[in-house]
Each structure stands twice: as C-alpha cells, then as structure tokens.
Design a protein around this nucleic acid. Structure first.
Length: 593
RNA sequence: GGGGGUGUAGCUCAGUUGGUUAGAGCGAUCGCCUGUCACGCGAUAGGUCGAGGGUUCGAGUCCCUUCACUCCCGCCA
C-alpha cells in the first residue's frame, strides 16, 4: 500500500465502515469544539470529514495546525449518526476517526483564504495563483478545460485528422499582430519570432501531402489584453484540410462544436445548423461581425426617411446631406416602459461618446403619432412610411443614431446590446452559433487611404478569377469566414490561395511587389509553386470555447497561469531583467533610459 | 496611446456636509466549549487610509500629480 493514502478524499463510503484508512490532503476547514475537533480534509477529488477528540495525544498539535497545511491521517471509518449526515459532500454519510496524523507540508499564514466564497482582487489571485487554483470553482474550470481538450483531440482523430507539431521558434511575419521576438545567439543581430499562429506551417503541411491536420496550438501575439483575450499567449484548435471547399470545413467544425457543447454544457443550442450571415449583412443588421444572435434586436437603415420634406429633424438632415446615415433599433411593445428607461439609454449613449440616441414610441389616437422628444419632427405620413419600413406596430419604440457609417456601426452595435440587456431580452440558457461569411478581400486604411488586406492575405478570392475585376479590389470577396457564438468570435478561417501567380497579383494590389512577397513569405510562396493542393481551414480558440462552456466572462478564469493586463506574470515575476553576460552572449545592448 | 472604475487591517468591505482616539466580518494569537459542517462564545494584536504635493484651524473625505489593478476604445492579418 502507498504510504500516503489508501483512498482519496472523495472515495470513502458507508461500505468502508470499520476499515482502517490513510488519507492525505489539505486542511480545508477546522471546526474546533475544544474537546472535539472536526477537520475537513480536501484533495483534488473531494472532501472527507475527519474527527479527533481530546483523548488522543495528537489532539493539541492538530488543533494548532494551520488551514491549508498538507497532512496525512490514519484512522477508522465510522458511520455518522443520521442527524449529522452531510448531503452536500459525497462522503457525507461517513467520517474518519483520526488515530494519528503527520504534517507533510506546513503552511504559513495565508495571504488569501482558500475556503471562501469571497471574490479577491486579480492582483492577489495571480500572485498566489497556486492558492487560488485550490479554490473549487476555478479548480473545476481547469479540469473542464483538460477534459474539453482531450475530447476535442479524440473527436478530431475520429474525423480523420492527425495532430502534428509545428515550430515555436520561427520567423517574424510582416503583417498582423506584433511579434514576440527571441534573439539568436548563433546568429548575432537576428531574431526568431514566436508564431502568431501556425498559419504558414499548416499550409506547408498540406503542400507536404498530409491532407488533414490539427493541433492544439499555442499562439503568441504581443497585443493588449481584453477580458476575453489573454495577453501574450493563447491556444487554438488549428486545423487544415486539403481538397476542400468552404462547406467541407463548415461541416467538420459544426460537428465538432455541436458534440463538444452538448457534452460539456446543459445549455441549449439555438441552432443545430449554424446560420450563415454575410459580412455586409452582419454589419448592417448587428453593427458588428460578431453578433450575439440570442439578442433579437435588429438594426435597420432609415436614412431615406430623413431626406423627406415632411421630416424636420434638422440636426439629422444636415448630417445626412454631408454623408452620414441614420440607423435605428426597434423595440417591441415598449410603450409602457418608464421614461427613465428611454432617458437611461440616451444618457448611456452620451457616456459612450455619442451625441445621444433619439427615440420615440408609436402611439395611435385618431391617427398615428410619435410620442417622445423628437416625435414632433415627423409628419403623419412619414411615421406611417417608417412603420412600414421597419415593420413597427403601435406600442413599439424606436431608437435612432446618426453618424458616418463606421462610427454608426459601432454605436448601434453597442446600443443593441445595451437595450437588450435593459429589457432582459437575452436568454442566457442558449448558445447561438453562426458563421460570418463573404468577407471582403481588401479594405481601405482609414489613415493612409491605401488598400490593405482586410483579414488574411492567404485567402482565396471568390468567383471566377477570369472575370474578377482587379481594378475594383474593394469589391472582391474572399472565401474567408468566422465562427461566432453569443457575440464572441471563436475563430476565423479561410479557403487558402494556393496559386502563386494569383498571390502575387493580390499582394500587388496591397502594394507589395514580387520581390517583397518572395522575401517575406519565401517558405510558403516557394512551396506553393511545387504542386500545392487546394486547401482551407480554420482555428477555433480553445480558451474561448472553454470560457463559454464554463459560463465565465473572463478568460483568466479558464487559464491556469495567466498574465495580468500588462502582460506580467506576478507569480513568476516575468518579464524580468537579464544579466549583462546574457545580453553580451546574445550580442544585445540596452538603451539607457 | 486614450477614456471609465477601484485602491482603507493579512483578506473582503463600511466610513455621513471636511471635525474627538479610523470601524465590522473573516483570518491570526490567547482562553472557554464533545457533534460541527460558514460551529459557537470571550479577549488581544494588527492601519504610511496606494504614493507625493496642495487647500484648510483641521483631510480617509476637497484639489493637483503619480503609481497599481481592472473594464473599454485604439490594437488583435
């Protein structure tokens, strides 16, 4: 028998009564009655109540032992009397009468309690992550993460994919996020980069003839953090397939995500077949390319109404003449909402840096009228036309925003979320997946007005390439797609461009000449010219999938050892300074501040 | 880079219009308690009120600067 334990702390049951057992674990909680002491002993698996009384010579020293000390106890399993059974724990019908105990790992005074429902500051949690991780909720989240990853691996294998590793030390890529750089000792003055994603490698794997690849891949991007975005590093389920069209990728991913979400969550799927929404439609209807489809509110363009002569809201009309658009959000049957609801939205909008949100409610006396601050600026006819256009009924309200398209999209997207939350229109018991498709290949850089790749330079343009009008690059769509769940972008992917000549052509539109492309993407462009299969893939974010499954709003709740917002690891003290000799060996010198 | 929020005991927080010696719960230490499971009861220790400056007879509270954490915008092909 193992010297530390005969059972774990979630194993002993009524059938074990009268057995001599050895348990090891952390002191989760003590309840000291002076002559009788209860110890809740905790390990990864659960809790067992242990008991000792004054008759035992170890009583006094056990009584003085700190919480979170690791101890080993030996004792006898006994039944609890009926009225002392604890139904909240699996071992609650029994307890262990301690015969002797031994401290295996002493514990100093705790900087934060482990057994508590309190919330703690991120700072203290991250500094003492090893204590934080002992706490039930996050401990279970991390175990869930492990199980999800293992399930996904298994499913991918079943779907015929094989897992291949790709380099961590690679070359810096010119586009996209900022790279983490690693100096090369053997090549002074030169740097590796950590991969932002194994993008080029997975395409090379296809060129190498492996057909179906996947990897739970670490990705490194030196960009600022968000609640749903770890600074520094995160994981993707990276996958790529040869001889496929967009639909083939969709089929695999839908299968995988549906089985994963059904297995690990009790929430319902809003759609078993994920709806496909074009990028342009999403931007109009939801103001974003990551819409939360649990939210029933839809944005509509009503610019036309404000060109009518019988609408006299001059502030909007002037903006419309100078190129702004007006978009609105209709809320059903809200005529009885208190004034504070409407004004609250308006005030909130102003807090968001907008000029506020105008609103009114459709009512009917003799004829249709608009009740609200801007109602008087609309003629009867204009109101009827508006109602028809946005499918409104008497009793519904409508919120308007007016701005240049890009800002308008941002505003209405946020407003859609805000209003839905206020009206409690979002059912938290659902996962609503969708595909966003038909991304434009290029976009105009706002500052420089130059054409640039809007997503991924390696994506395949849509349509018959002979007929594509390369003179109007902004009109070219790509086989580029995102998958979104509950307003969170889970991944993006594409059918790749495997034709070198076309690649040069597209890069030239974005201002890169042949030599620059050859320099920057030598590995890949070279490979594509030696017989590359048509291929495509996608890369769902593992952290975000687990976050959704765990019902967490912050990615650190499903990450074992995350960095803080400033990309520092407070526990390991990273990043840190290095010695002069290390720098010298790397042929680096630091600028004095 | 920009905007918002927070910062008071080891932890979680309260602290009124600026006014006596800055409080509570948990934790720690000591004492009492043989059926608790957030055990109970009593006592003690524990504070640069994030830091610096200013206004004031007087600042945890008002003003300025700054730091830390966090949320958001930019950024994340």
């Amino acid at each position: 028998m193992n010297k530390y334990r005969s059972h774990n702390c979630n194993e002993i049951r009524a059938k074990d009564v009268k057995k001599k057992v050895i348990l090891s674990g952390w002191i989760n909680k003590k309840r000291d009655h002076g002559n009788l002491l209860f110890i809740d002993l905790r390990d990864n698996y659960g809790i067992t109540q242990c008991i000792i009384d004054k008759e035992n010579s170890s009583f006094t020293s056990l009584e003085k032992t700190q919480l979170e000390t690791v101890i080993k106890i030996e004792g006898l399993v006994v039944n609890r009397s009926k009225e002392t059974i604890n139904k909240d724990i699996d071992t609650g019908e029994v307890e262990v009468v301690i015969d002797k105990f031994e401290v295996l790992g002493a514990c100093r005074e705790l900087p934060m309690p482990v057994f508590s429902d309190q919330e703690y500051s991120e700072e203290i949690r991250l500094k003492y992550r090893f204590l934080d991780l002992r706490r039930k909720k996050i401990h279970e989240n991390i175990i869930l993460r492990s199980k999800v990853i293992s399930f996904i691996r298994n499913e991918m294998n079943n779907l015929g994919f094989l897992e291949y590793q790709t380099p961590i030390l690679t070359s810096s890529s010119p586009e996209g996020a900022r790279d983490f750089l690693v100096p090369s000792r053997l090549n002074p003055g030169k740097f590796y980069a950590l991969p932002q994603a194994p993008q080029q490698f997975k395409q090379l794997i296809m060129v190498s003839g492996f057909d179906k690849y996947f990897q739970i891949a670490p990705c490194f991007r030196d960009e600022d953090a968000r609640a749903d975005r770890s600074p520094g590093e995160f994981y993707q389920l990276d996958l790529e397939m040869s001889f496929v069209e967009q639909e083939d990728v969709f089929e695999v991913v839908e299968k995988l995500l549906i089985s994963t979400f059904k297995k690990f969550s009790n929430k319902k799927l809003m759609f078993e077949k994920f709806p496909k929404i074009s990028y342009s439609e999403a931007m109009l209807k939801y103001g974003t390319d990551k819409p939360d489809l649990r939210n029933p509110l839809i944005i509509k363009d009503v610019t036309e109404i404000f060109t009518r002569e019988d609408v006299s809201l001059e502030i909007f009309k002037k903006l419309v003449i100078s190129g702004s658009k007006v978009r609105c959000i209709l809320t059903k049957n809200t005529k009885n909402q208190p004034r504070s609801f409407f004004d609250g939205i308006d005030k909130w909008a102003k807090d968001q840096g907008m000029s506020g949100m105008a609103y009114f409610t459709f009512e009917k006396e003799k004829e249709i009228l608009a009740k609200g601050p801007i109602g008087k600026f609309f003629s009867n006819k204009a109101l009827e036309e508006l109602m028809k256009k946005i499918n409104a009924k008497v009793g519904d309200s409508v919120f308007f925003a007016c701005n240049k398209v890009k800002e308008l999209e941002r505003i209405t997207s946020l407003a859609r979320e805000k209003i839905a939350n206020e009206l409690k229109l979002i059912d938290e018991e659902y996962f609503a997946f969708c595909w966003i498709v038909d991304y434009p290949m290029f976009e105009e850089d706002e500052q420089t007005k130059k054409i640039k790749f809007s997503h991924n330079p390696f994506s395949m343009p849509q349509g018959d390439l002979d007929k594509t009008n390369f003179k109007k690059p902004l009109e070219i769509l790509a086989y580029q797609y995102d998958i979104v769940c509950n307003g969170i972008e889970l991944s993006s992917g594409a059918i790749r461009n495997h034709i070198p000549e076309l690649m040069y052509k597209l890069f030239s539109l974005a201002g890169y000449n042949k030599k620059q492309v050859d320099d920057k993407f030598s590995g890949m462009i070279n490979a594509l010219s030696y017989g590359a299969p048509p291929h495509g893939g996608i890369a769902p974010g593992i952290d975000r999938i687990v976050m959704l499954l765990a019902g967490e709003k912050n990615i650190r709740e499903v990450t074992m050892f995350p960095m803080n917002q400033n990309a520092q690891d407070l526990m390991m003290n990273a990043p840190s300074e290095v010695s002069d000799s290390q720098l010298k060996e790397l042929n680096l010198s630091l600028k004095k501040k």
